[in-house]
């Protein structure tokens, strides 16, 4: 039986520049949970649940038990990782926050996750965003919500990235913007060797 789940970019195949300067791929297996809660109250409560803490520094993340916890706002975080790891963390969070006013939501289907990596990744991204992605400014683990072309998305430089190697960025974007973002990223990578991608188009429009 074919998979019933069809991710936002299932119709796209991963792209790679010839010399590995840049590659683009969807991460359809990534599970996501959104959390909104008061940071201080939550971290007090989570202290009991050993090892769990929400990053309070704006635009940073924490990598714990296979899950990336991304700061999205002063009372908003995104959990991102393999399904099992996210589920395990969700259960522990649920326990830890039971007594606190919070909102914990499955947002896996809401968003698409696009991975962009390679030594040209920063350059390609800066064709689309006004964020300063200089290696000395946007560092491993950093997170930023911004505009990428005409799409709003969250950018995350994986903290697991080794400075010796090429950076790996994740872009978390609303699923209906994913195809657009994929295509503008491919266009940005064209001079580094990515093939052109044509957005879904050709529908018959009403007169």
């Amino acid at each position: 039986m074919p998979d019933r789940r069809i991710s936002a970019l299932a119709h796209r195949t991963p792209l790679q520049a010839g010399d590995g300067a840049l590659s683009l791929a969807e991460r359809p297996q990534v599970a996501m949970r959104g959390l909104r809660v008061d940071a201080k109250a939550a971290n007090r409560a989570l202290k009991k649940t050993k090892g769990l803490a929400l990053p309070e520094t704006p635009n940073t993340s924490r990598h714990t038990e296979g899950v990336h916890i991304l700061w999205l706002g002063p009372d908003e975080w995104l959990f991102l990782g393999e399904v099992d790891a996210v589920h395990a963390l969700r259960d522990r969070l649920g326990d830890g926050l039971a007594q606190i006013h919070h909102q914990l939501l499955d947002v896996r289907d809401q968003n698409a996750v696009i991975a962009l990596s390679g030594k040209r990744a920063r350059e390609a991204l800066m064709k689309l965003t006004t964020l300063d992605l200089h290696p000395g400014v946007f560092r491993p683990g950093d997170v930023a919500g911004s505009l990428f072309g005409r799409a709003t998305a969250t950018l995350h430089l994986l903290e697991t990235y080794d400075p010796e190697r090429d950076p790996e960025f994740l872009l978390i974007v609303r699923r209906s913007y994913a195809d657009y973002l994929w295509c503008v990223l491919a266009r940005a990578g064209r001079e580094f060797g990515l093939p052109d991608q044509t957005p879904k188009a050709g529908e018959i429009m009403r007169p």
């Binding site: 069809i6 005409r150 799409a151 209906s176 913007y177 195809d179 295509c183 957005p199 879904k200 529908e203």
Partner: peptide, 23 residues
């Protein structure tokens, strides 16, 4: 085609394949 994002639903491909005119 990159002028503006066009948001489509998960069912979009079915609509296209079945004669939908879009609004």
């Amino acid at each position: 085609k990159l002028f503006q994002p066009r948001r489509t639903t998960p069912m979009h491909d079915w609509h296209v394949a079945n004669g939908a005119v879009f609004d």
